[in-house]
């Protein structure tokens, strides 16, 4: 078998794994968009904020220590304890729920019935605020996150593929774990949306705010719940990406990676987010491998997803699985 082809398969598999991570972020977008019509640009920053908080709690960092030190001339940095990963994740989740409540009460309650584009810009503002807030609270240095997820090359796949192709595939354990977790998460979310009382209420709100209100569904509760769910997805995404490449500012840019995924899959579809994520993950890795690196000078991953989504949208404006756009005067 030609070498190029085998490498291609390896790239394909890695693209698939990367795609799962994109899908994970995109999922957070879809959740909020479906329930409240808000396109939440701050999702990536929420992932960063969640990861920062998680590391901060695990390491026993003093929040705002930098600010306190600068104002009072003190020298405090750590409480001196270490919180086990599981407890820290629970605590972070509490913080994310509190954040969801604050965001809903202070911002989006006042913006009900505004145009989608105004809401979108408000989330950009939120993203900026949260970015500054997170850095101020926990410091802006690069942190390592380790909650005990396995990392490094998977020896089994390496060995099996070596026996078949004479060439061992490099597949990261973390990616495999991420794939499993993402799949579990999607399954849980679909079950939640389809079969629980709150899930049904959520879908009702997504369909029609006023009708939902008139049958006695509390919009506020649903919105806080949805933002908390998005916070939870952000936390999971933050843990995955944080473990992979360290907790740092660039983590918030995964939101930008998820946007074309959404455009491709359609903003309103959970399966769309998954399929879109996989398509883009595989597409950009294969493009970089086959055309980008040899002919175009590399680093095409930055824009490939966007251009793909752009070309795609020209032919199908609502995305792969999106609801058909009907406009009336």
């Amino acid at each position: 078998m030609p070498e190029q082809f085998i490498w291609g398969i390896e790239v394909f598999l890695n693209g698939l794994m990367a795609g799962v991570l994109y899908a994970l972020v995109a999922l957070g977008f879809v959740l909020i968009y479906k329930a409240s019509g808000i396109f939440n640009y701050a999702q990536g920053v929420m992932a960063l904020f969640a990861a920062l908080t998680l590391v901060g709690i695990m390491e026993g960092q003093v929040p705002f220590s930098h600010l306190i030190n600068a104002t009072f001339g003190t020298e405090i940095h750590h409480f001196g304890w270490h919180v086990p990963a599981f407890a820290a994740i629970l605590l972070t989740m509490v913080v994310m729920i509190a954040l969801a409540w604050v965001v809903n009460t202070l911002i989006f309650k006042h913006l009900v019935n505004q145009e989608p584009i105004i809401l979108f810009m408000a989330t950009i503002g939120l993203a900026y605020f949260l970015e500054g807030f997170g850095d101020m609270m926990w410091g802006s240095d690069i942190k390592t996150l380790n909650v005990g997820l396995p990392q490094g090359i998977n020896p089994v796949i390496d060995e099996v593929t070596y026996n078949i192709f004479d060439y061992g595939f490099f597949i990261d354990n973390l990616d495999i774990v991420a794939t499993v977790i993402a799949a579990a998460l999607v399954f849980t979310l679909i079950v939640f949306a389809q079969y629980t009382k709150q899930g049904r209420a959520m879908r009702a709100v997504a369909d029609d705010h006023q009708a939902a209100l008139s049958v006695g569904i509390s919009l506020n509760f649903i919105w806080v719940m949805v933002w908390s769910l998005a916070g939870f997805v952000a936390l999971v995404a933050g843990i995955m990406w944080g473990t992979k490449s360290g907790v740092q500012f660039s983590l918030s840019l995964i939101a930008l990676k998820a946007l074309p995924v959404l455009m491709l899959g359609g903003f309103t579809s959970i399966p769309g987010a998954i399929v879109g994520g996989l398509l883009i993950g595989v597409g950009e890795k294969l493009f970089e491998f086959a055309i980008g690196a040899p002919y175009l000078g590399g680093a095409t991953e930055i824009w490939f997803a966007y251009v793909l989504a752009l070309i795609f949208l020209v032919f199908r404006p609502q995305g792969l699985f999106g609801e058909k756009i009907i406009e009336r005067v």
Binding site: L126, A127, Y128, F129, E131, G132, M136
Partner: peptide, 12 residues
């Protein structure tokens, strides 16, 4: 950092 917070807050 404060500048980020203020700009974001002002937008909202």
């Amino acid at each position: 950092h404060l500048e980020f917070m203020i700009v974001g807050g002002l937008i909202v």
